[in-house]
């Protein structure tokens, strides 16, 4: 049985990347907590992980070489958050408490994924050394 790194590391190699992107999105929400008109965003974990594992992107298909490449602009797995209160006075929908809690949760989940990866690596190392 050959060791396949892709199979051995499983889904965790992709989930680390998705958590990283989510950290970025949440950090930009918190940074813009006082920006008028800013709308809070979040990553749909399911969609992001699916596109990360399958490697699919949402670009428009081109039928001619001379077409302009239709970039998706903003990734489709990033969605706007439904605000907790209808109007904050300046059009900002960031709730700092929610964002901070989500950021902390995301960072714990990131570390969980990392420790999964770590144990997979040490398993493989044991197999290689034959101890």
């Amino acid at each position: 049985m050959a060791i396949n790194f892709d199979n051995a590391l499983g889904i965790h190699q992709y989930s680390v990347g998705v958590r990283e992107r989510r950290a970025e999105v949440l950090a930009s929400n918190i940074a813009n907590a006082d920006t008028p008109g800013f709308k809070a965003k979040d990553l749909s974990f399911k969609d992001a992980l699916a596109s990360a594992t399958q490697g699919t992107s949402f670009n428009l298909s081109k039928t001619s070489e001379r077409h302009i490449s239709g970039g998706r602009g903003i990734a489709s797995d990033v969605q706007f958050r439904v605000p907790n209160q209808p109007d904050t006075g300046d059009g900002n929908t960031v709730d700092v408490q929610t964002e901070r809690a989500s950021f902390m949760q995301n960072s714990m989940e990131y570390q969980a994924s990392l420790s999964f990866l770590s144990s997979k690596i040490s398993t493989m190392r044991k197999a290689i050394k034959g101890q």
């Binding site: 940074a31 813009n32 965003k41 903003i74």
Partner: peptide, 11 residues
């Protein structure tokens, strides 16, 4: 914010 693939927006 306008650049593709860039979800993080600073102030």
């Amino acid at each position: 914010a306008n650049a593709a693939q860039n979800e993080a927006v600073g102030v």
